[in-house]
Design a protein around this nucleic acid. Structure first.
Length: 426
RNA sequence: GUGGCUGUAGCUCAAUGGCGGAGCGUCUGACUGUGGAUCAGAAGGGUGUGGGUUCGACCCCCAUCAGCCACCCCA
């Protein structure tokens, strides 16, 4: 086994078990997205690097992207996020699309980072955006979708929380402290780092960035004030709306939330596992992104959720249901060499009757064939030997209930249908 | 990009610097028309890779690759 070529660092192999989980998650995402009337879309997996250079932020573009040259020498990047692609797609058809536009997507992304818990170099992401209106109702809808998703998968507000802030509010507050330009950007970084540094280190860092003692105190007050949102009209309005949804327990104001992406201009939010602390999803409101890629100005709000962290969280809380091992419902055994062809035909007969059927492709001993059916998770086994053949019937065994009866093919089909309906989820 | 831990059979792990083992799994049989249980037997690795130290290396040293964890950053 040592000669097997290793997979690319930070990638995952989706063996059927993991693929089933991915598709289960995809299904939940689809249900919630469609519940709110969003349409599924997808963009290319590769883009020109300029697309991200426009607005995504330096680190994401210069250090975390997979970049290569195509044969013509043009720099191409594996997409590290979807929002710029979305902005581009919207800008290209700006005059044909009907706004407000509600789109969602679930696809692969790549970031060149050191893999660790909850982070791989290739991951899947749910992106969902509402574009074309600039209202608190739009912002509140996206928060509602997040919370509704958590409720859909069984994550209650005691386990996860949506932390919300406003870039606009933070800008105003920092301006009041006399922080402009580079100093304000430094302050944002400072806020971002507060829970990662010791208080004394944090103070030193702040002063080293050129902030005054008074400004530092001002930031501390800002961050410790849970009621700061009252000074933001948009946050007040958003929180009011959330009260009407029955999902308010999920949502809380948190002035520490800043977000790394440069294009956010209004509310920003992150969902966190209250037990683990890591961020499950993040998003916000952006006013200028469509214009940044060459379109006319158009606001939007959206978020992205990676599959890796949410899967870890769901697994931790035991919220991933048992997923079907095998799509097959029936296995047709081969009694002996002489019956290979008749069994082969019988299997197709069952498929034509609408049953997912596996045919055992050689004349092995029956115990082996039963064992195989059991292992791969097929519930029903059909046997057709000399006795059955003489009587014009087949034997049907239910491995789940260990029952068995002999009956004609059409009644066996009916029997299986009836038992599948009853035994679902057992 | 920085730091730490780890790397032995398909899997989970043992093995003072002195002949590499166990459990689970797999295969075969007991059970010659019936799966999961039990019992018996068998196959399967030369220790991630490349160097070095040593009479002798899974064990010590260096490098490298990979995984994990934290930082950075973020989904």
């Amino acid at each position: 086994m040592k000669n097997v070529i290793q997979p690319v660092k930070g990638t995952r192999d989706f063996y059927p078990e993991l693929m089933a989980l991915r598709n289960w998650l995809y299904g939940k995402i689809r249900v919630v997205s469609e519940r709110f009337g969003y349409q599924e879309y997808e963009g290319p997996f590769i883009e020109k690097i300029e697309l991200y250079a426009a607005k995504s932020g330096d680190e994401l573009v210069n250090q975390q992207s997979f970049v290569f040259q195509d044969r013509g020498g043009d720099p191409i990047t594996l997409r590290p996020e979807l929002t710029p692609t979305l902005a581009r797609m919207v800008a290209q058809r700006q005059n044909e699309l009907t706004f407000p536009l509600r789109w969602w997507s679930f696809g692969p992304f790549w970031r060149y980072e050191r893999p660790q818990k909850g982070r791989t170099r290739e991951f899947f992401q749910w992106n969902i955006d509402l574009i074309g209106v600039n209202t608190p109702e739009a912002d509140a809808e996206l928060l509602q979708i997040c919370a509704n998703f958590f409720r859909e998968v069984g994550l209650g507000p005691q386990k996860v929380r949506l932390l919300v802030n406003s870039r606009r509010l933070m800008d105003q507050q920092l301006a009041k402290l006399g922080l402009e330009g580079d100093l304000r950007r430094a302050a944002f970084r400072l806020i971002d780092r507060m829970d990662k540094l010791q208080p004394s280190e944090w103070n030193d860092y702040a002063l080293s960035q050129g902030l005054s003692i008074a400004q530092l105190e001002g930031i501390k007050n800002l961050l410790s004030n849970d009621e700061g949102w009252h000074q933001s009209e948009e946050l007040c309005h958003v929180f009011e709306l959330i009260q009407l949804t029955g999902l308010a327990d999920y949502i809380r104001y948190d002035p520490h939330i800043i977000r790394g992406l440069d294009y956010y201009t209004g509310i920003v939010f992150e969902a966190k596992d209250l037990d683990g602390g890591r961020s499950i999803l993040g998003g916000g409101h952006y006013d200028n992104l469509v214009a940044a890629v060459g379109g006319n100005p158009l606001p939007g709000v959206g978020f992205a959720m990676g599959d890796v962290m949410i899967s870890l969280v769901l697994e931790k809380y035991g919220l991933i249901p048992p997923l079907p091992q095998n799509p097959a419902q029936v296995l047709v055994t081969v009694f002996d060499e002489s019956r290979l062809a008749s069994s082969f035909a019988l299997a197709m007969q069952l498929r034509n009757a609408g049953l997912n059927t596996v045919f055992y492709p050689e004349a092995a001993k029956l115990p082996k064939q039963f064992k195989y059916a059991d292992r791969i998770g097929v519930r029903f086994v059909v046997v057709s030997g000399p006795d059955e053949e003489a009587a014009g019937v087949i034997t049907l065994k239910d491995l789940l209930y260990r029952t068995q009866e002999t009956l004609t093919v059409p009644s066996a089909v009916e029997k299986i249908r009836a038992l599948l309906a009853v035994g679902q989820g057992l």
